[in-house]
């Protein structure tokens, strides 16, 4: 296969209406970014030290663990939020012990203990 002349390929590309349209949009985007001042922000952020500080702040052991468990966390938060929206009657102390027969309450209690243990580690 004969290697093609890069200049020839470029000229062909320039004639493609799809390319023209994409280029127009790109120019419009860059202009809009410039006008809003965002381009200046991005340029300032593209500095090695800023990137370094930003990444070491965003990527910590804590955030990596948090992100890894985000699904479990949001699922739990969703359940809690729903439970909060449902009406409840105050539980008299004498009946508290009956609630402890509920397996869901027992599991929740075990979770709470695990959370307390984790808090104790920090």
């Amino acid at each position: 296969m004969q290697a093609r002349d890069p200049l020839e390929m470029l000229i062909e590309e320039l004639g493609d209406p799809e390319f023209q349209e994409a280029l127009d949009k790109l120019v419009a985007l860059v202009k809009a970014l410039n006008k809003s001042g965002l381009l200046d922000v991005l340029l300032a952020m593209a500095d090695e030290e800023v990137v370094s500080r930003l990444s070491s702040m965003l990527m910590t052991t804590g955030t990596m663990k948090l992100a890894d468990n985000i699904e479990a966390l949001t699922r739990a938060a969703g359940e809690v939020a729903q439970a909060l929206s449902e009406p409840v009657e105050p539980v008299p102390p004498s009946e508290l012990v009956y609630s402890l027969r509920d397996p869901e309450v027992l599991r929740g209690l075990a979770r709470l203990l695990a959370v307390l243990r984790a808090l104790g580690r920090t």
Binding site: S52, S56, T61
Partner: peptide, 13 residues
């Protein structure tokens, strides 16, 4: 360019 980002990841993990 990637060194600081990778460094942060490797330190965190």
């Amino acid at each position: 360019r990637w060194a600081p980002i990778f460094r942060a990841y490797f330190n965190a993990t």
